[in-house]
Amino acid sequence: MPKIIVVDREGTQSVLNAPVGLSLMESLRDEGYDDILALCGGCASCATCHVVVGAAWVDVVGPASEEEVDLLESSPYLEPGRSRLSCQIEVVDEHDGLEIRIAPEE
């Protein structure tokens, strides 16, 4: 199971075991990262699962969709090219070792 390195809003780093096939949001939420509100349940309607992908991992994870960009653009914590909605990242084996940071609450 891919291991994801997560830095939460307090700056604390931990390792998340993320099953392949679920979204990153679902794994974060289910494992008790309560900073992830995930109000809409994963349909890219709320932007409450905003994460910032480690610079070295941007190509592996891929770019945000147009809809994600539209939602994220008005966030004061947008990091262009690295901000993603974690509900739109489906975990795959290649994500083993991925580093993400949970964006601050808006």
């Binding site: 890219a44 932007a47 809809e67 539209d70 939602l71 994220l72 653009e73 008005s74």
Partner: peptide
């Protein structure tokens, strides 16, 4: 029109 939604919220 997600952009309008995101910007309209404020």
């Amino acid at each position: 029109a997600t952009k309008d939604f995101a910007q309209g919220r404020s």
